[in-house]
Amino acid sequence: MSFIRIGFPSLQQFCVNALVAVSLLVGGVAHAEGGPATAQDGERVIKLAAAADKDPLAVMSSAEGRWFQKWADDVSDYQFGPDKGVFWFHNGVAKGDLMRVLRFHHTVTTAAFQWQKKIKDPRLNPADDDAKTLAGVEGLLRAYEVLVAKNPENRVAKIDDLIAIRNKGGLADFVKAMPPMPSR
């Protein structure tokens, strides 16, 4: 099994990750399968997204990350499905473990965004869908930057190009011009 090359975490980073995990576990209770989102769920998701900005691989691999993945699939009143941003980086931009971490981070970022903006199903309003997609792409760029800082071998030219577009203020236009999701 291969993992993203990030090197060994320092004792300080391990302690930070442990503290985040404990605070997330203490802060919320398990969500009932298939039920509506609770205020505690939303708080957990927002904290998880903030922690994932600092160490996306550790958060994805944690018990809280696994809770989130199950919760996002099971929650009955929010739709966190893929969007054209996910399709863009799944379509040959990122591969393997890097793709899995970026996909996780995109999902947790969009879930936190939707919770904060009270957007239950962004597909119902094109402006909400565009805003959700932009938030997700911004999130995956933050995760990518952390992963590359830990190990430059994680670098992907197309994502570096997208960071340059973001840094010039053109990310929203780039996301708006992405091809739509393919029909199922």
Rank of each mutant, 00 (worst) to 15 (best):
M1D: 08
F3Q: 14
I4V: 15
G7C: 09
F8N: 13
C15Y: 15
L19H: 13
V22A: 10
S23W: 10
L24I: 13
L24A: 12
L24R: 07
V26P: 02
V26T: 12
G27H: 08
G28L: 06
A32C: 11
G34C: 10
G35V: 11
A37D: 03
A37W: 04
Q40N: 12
E43A: 15
R44Q: 14
I46T: 15
K47N: 14
L48E: 06
D55P: 03
L57N: 12
L57K: 06
M60L: 15
M60Q: 15
S61L: 14
S62N: 09
G65P: 13
G65S: 07
R66L: 15
F68N: 09
F68A: 08
Q69Y: 07
W71D: 03
W71S: 09
A72N: 03
V75R: 01
V75K: 00
S76A: 15
Y78M: 10
Q79L: 14
Q79I: 12
F80A: 01
G81C: 10
G81D: 15
G81N: 15
D83L: 01
G85L: 01
G85I: 01
K95C: 13
L102H: 02
R103N: 12
R103M: 07
R103C: 05
F104Y: 06
T107C: 04
T107D: 06
V108D: 04
V108S: 03
T109W: 02
T110M: 08
A112P: 05
Q114V: 00
K117I: 00
I119C: 01
K120T: 08
D121K: 05
R123A: 08
P126E: 06
A131V: 07
K132L: 07
T133Q: 01
L134F: 00
A135P: 01
A135F: 02
A135Q: 02
V137E: 00
V137F: 00
V137T: 01
V137K: 00
G139L: 07
G139D: 08
L141E: 03
R142S: 05
R142V: 06
A143Y: 04
E145D: 06
L147I: 13
L147N: 02
L147S: 06
V148C: 05
V148W: 05
A149K: 13
A149M: 13
N151Y: 04
P152K: 14
R155C: 05
R155I: 11
V156C: 07
V156L: 11
A157L: 09
A157N: 06
K158I: 07
D160H: 10
D161H: 07
D161W: 04
A164M: 04
I165W: 00
I165H: 02
N167H: 09
V175T: 00
M178Y: 01
M178W: 04
M178N: 02
S183V: 11
S183G: 11
